[in-house]
Amino acid sequence: TDCSIVSFLARLGCSSCLDYFTTQGLTTIYQIEHYSMDDLASLKIPEQFRHAIWKGILDHRQLHEF
């Protein structure tokens, strides 16, 4: 599957948040998979999107835990 942040955000309906990640040089889900809610806040992601992205990260982690 596509591991880009572009497609990750698109699946979550949060494509408008892409610039918050790319300006930090973040391009793949693996770069953010251990981010906390505070990390997302420090990227200045608007609160209404933060929870959806956080949930997406948690779902991603569960899929990749062996």
Results as ranks from 00 to 15, higher is better:
residue 50 R to Q: 08
residue 56 G to W: 01
residue 51 H to M: 14
residue 43 L to V: 05
residue 37 M to V: 13
residue 22 T to Q: 12
residue 11 R to F: 03
residue 10 A to T: 05
residue 57 I to V: 07
residue 61 R to Y: 04
residue 13 G to A: 06
residue 29 I to M: 15
residue 54 W to F: 06
residue 16 S to V: 07
residue 31 Q to V: 01
residue 23 T to V: 10
residue 33 E to A: 10
residue 1 T to M: 10
residue 28 T to Q: 13
residue 57 I to Q: 02
residue 9 L to F: 02
residue 13 G to Y: 03
residue 64 H to G: 11
residue 49 F to D: 12
residue 57 I to E: 01
residue 10 A to S: 06
residue 22 T to R: 10
residue 27 T to F: 09
residue 34 H to K: 13
residue 25 G to D: 08
residue 47 E to G: 15
residue 22 T to V: 11
residue 18 L to W: 04
residue 14 C to P: 01
residue 14 C to W: 02
residue 40 L to I: 11
residue 53 I to C: 02
residue 39 D to S: 05
residue 31 Q to R: 02
residue 26 L to K: 05
residue 39 D to W: 02
residue 30 Y to D: 15
residue 7 S to V: 09
residue 13 G to T: 04
residue 24 Q to G: 07
residue 63 L to K: 14
residue 63 L to F: 06
residue 13 G to I: 01
residue 7 S to Q: 08
residue 44 K to E: 14
residue 35 Y to R: 02
residue 16 S to A: 11
residue 13 G to E: 08
residue 48 Q to N: 14
residue 7 S to F: 07
residue 60 H to S: 08
residue 22 T to S: 11
residue 62 Q to H: 13
residue 60 H to F: 14
residue 62 Q to F: 06
residue 6 V to F: 09
residue 23 T to E: 13
residue 43 L to T: 03
residue 7 S to H: 08
residue 30 Y to L: 10
residue 27 T to S: 12
residue 17 C to F: 03
residue 20 Y to D: 04
residue 49 F to S: 12
residue 25 G to W: 01
residue 50 R to N: 04
residue 29 I to N: 01
residue 6 V to H: 09
residue 62 Q to T: 12
residue 5 I to C: 01
residue 62 Q to A: 13
residue 50 R to K: 08
residue 4 S to L: 11
residue 28 T to R: 09
residue 37 M to E: 13
residue 1 T to W: 10
residue 12 L to N: 06
residue 32 I to M: 04
residue 56 G to A: 08
residue 26 L to S: 02
residue 23 T to D: 12
residue 14 C to I: 08
residue 10 A to D: 05
residue 62 Q to M: 11
residue 7 S to L: 05
residue 40 L to K: 00
residue 37 M to N: 05
residue 2 D to L: 03
residue 6 V to C: 06
residue 18 L to K: 15
residue 4 S to P: 04
residue 24 Q to P: 04
residue 6 V to K: 15
residue 52 A to D: 08
residue 31 Q to A: 06
residue 50 R to Y: 04
residue 63 L to W: 09
residue 18 L to F: 04
residue 26 L to P: 02
residue 4 S to I: 02
residue 48 Q to H: 14
residue 62 Q to S: 12
residue 56 G to M: 02
residue 54 W to N: 11
residue 45 I to S: 00
residue 57 I to Y: 00
residue 15 S to T: 14
residue 10 A to P: 00
residue 36 S to T: 12
residue 1 T to D: 11
residue 56 G to C: 02
residue 38 D to H: 04
residue 21 F to P: 00
residue 49 F to G: 04
residue 28 T to I: 04
residue 8 F to Y: 03
residue 34 H to C: 05
residue 51 H to I: 07
residue 24 Q to S: 11
residue 46 P to R: 02
residue 5 I to Q: 00
residue 25 G to V: 01
residue 12 L to P: 01
residue 51 H to D: 12
residue 37 M to F: 14
residue 42 S to A: 13
residue 58 L to Q: 14
residue 11 R to S: 08
residue 23 T to N: 14
residue 54 W to T: 06
residue 63 L to M: 15
residue 15 S to C: 09
residue 27 T to R: 09
residue 19 D to M: 07
residue 17 C to W: 02
residue 9 L to C: 03
residue 24 Q to L: 07
residue 17 C to G: 02
residue 40 L to G: 00
residue 36 S to P: 02
residue 29 I to G: 01
residue 59 D to E: 14
residue 52 A to C: 13
residue 49 F to N: 09
residue 31 Q to P: 01
residue 45 I to Y: 01
residue 15 S to R: 09
residue 61 R to K: 15
residue 22 T to L: 12
residue 21 F to V: 00
residue 44 K to L: 08
residue 30 Y to W: 09
residue 56 G to S: 05
residue 63 L to G: 13
residue 38 D to Q: 12
residue 20 Y to C: 07
residue 29 I to T: 10
residue 28 T to H: 09
residue 41 A to T: 12
residue 29 I to L: 12
residue 19 D to R: 13
residue 46 P to Q: 03
residue 50 R to F: 05
residue 52 A to K: 12
residue 32 I to A: 02
residue 48 Q to K: 13
residue 48 Q to T: 12
residue 61 R to N: 10
residue 13 G to D: 15
residue 18 L to Q: 14
residue 37 M to Y: 10
residue 15 S to H: 11
residue 35 Y to K: 05
residue 23 T to P: 07
residue 22 T to Y: 04
residue 21 F to Q: 00
residue 18 L to D: 07
residue 57 I to C: 06
residue 59 D to C: 09
residue 51 H to L: 11
residue 65 E to H: 08
residue 14 C to Y: 08
residue 42 S to T: 14
residue 62 Q to E: 15
residue 61 R to L: 08
residue 39 D to P: 01
residue 32 I to H: 01
residue 28 T to M: 11
residue 34 H to L: 06
residue 47 E to Q: 14
residue 24 Q to T: 09
residue 25 G to K: 11
residue 47 E to I: 10
residue 64 H to F: 08
residue 3 C to T: 13
residue 18 L to N: 10
residue 61 R to F: 11
residue 57 I to M: 06
residue 20 Y to H: 10
residue 32 I to Y: 00
residue 43 L to E: 02
residue 30 Y to I: 10
residue 30 Y to N: 10
residue 56 G to N: 03
residue 25 G to N: 10
residue 22 T to G: 06
residue 61 R to Q: 11
residue 57 I to A: 03
residue 19 D to Y: 06
residue 28 T to Y: 09
residue 59 D to G: 12
residue 17 C to H: 02
residue 32 I to C: 03
residue 62 Q to V: 09
residue 34 H to M: 10
residue 41 A to K: 15
residue 6 V to T: 15
residue 66 F to P: 15
residue 19 D to H: 15
residue 53 I to R: 00
residue 10 A to W: 04
residue 10 A to I: 04
residue 46 P to A: 03
residue 57 I to N: 01
residue 42 S to L: 14
residue 15 S to L: 09
residue 66 F to S: 13
residue 19 D to N: 15
residue 46 P to Y: 00
residue 36 S to V: 07
residue 39 D to Y: 02
residue 46 P to K: 03
residue 36 S to C: 11
residue 16 S to I: 07
residue 39 D to Q: 11
residue 15 S to V: 08
residue 24 Q to I: 08
residue 4 S to F: 05
residue 37 M to S: 07
residue 59 D to R: 07
residue 43 L to I: 11
residue 33 E to C: 10
residue 42 S to V: 13
residue 43 L to S: 03
residue 56 G to L: 01
residue 55 K to G: 09
residue 19 D to V: 07
residue 58 L to G: 14
residue 57 I to H: 01
residue 39 D to H: 04
residue 24 Q to D: 05
residue 2 D to T: 04
residue 11 R to A: 09
residue 30 Y to R: 15
residue 47 E to T: 11
residue 26 L to R: 02
residue 55 K to H: 06
residue 39 D to R: 04
residue 23 T to S: 11
residue 2 D to V: 04
residue 6 V to E: 08
residue 5 I to T: 02
residue 34 H to W: 09
residue 53 I to P: 00
residue 31 Q to L: 02
residue 8 F to I: 03
residue 50 R to I: 15
residue 22 T to A: 12
residue 5 I to H: 02
residue 60 H to K: 08
residue 15 S to I: 10
residue 31 Q to W: 01
residue 46 P to C: 02
residue 24 Q to V: 10
residue 54 W to C: 03
residue 61 R to A: 11
residue 7 S to D: 09
residue 65 E to P: 07
residue 35 Y to I: 03
residue 13 G to K: 13
residue 2 D to Y: 04
residue 65 E to Q: 15
residue 15 S to A: 10
residue 22 T to M: 06
residue 17 C to D: 00
residue 17 C to S: 04
residue 27 T to C: 05
residue 2 D to H: 04
residue 23 T to F: 06
residue 50 R to S: 06
residue 11 R to K: 12
residue 24 Q to K: 13
residue 65 E to Y: 04
residue 19 D to G: 11
residue 46 P to M: 00
residue 43 L to P: 02
residue 27 T to N: 12
residue 12 L to H: 06
residue 40 L to F: 10
residue 35 Y to F: 13
residue 31 Q to D: 13
residue 13 G to W: 01
residue 25 G to C: 05
residue 8 F to H: 03
residue 66 F to I: 13
residue 58 L to R: 15
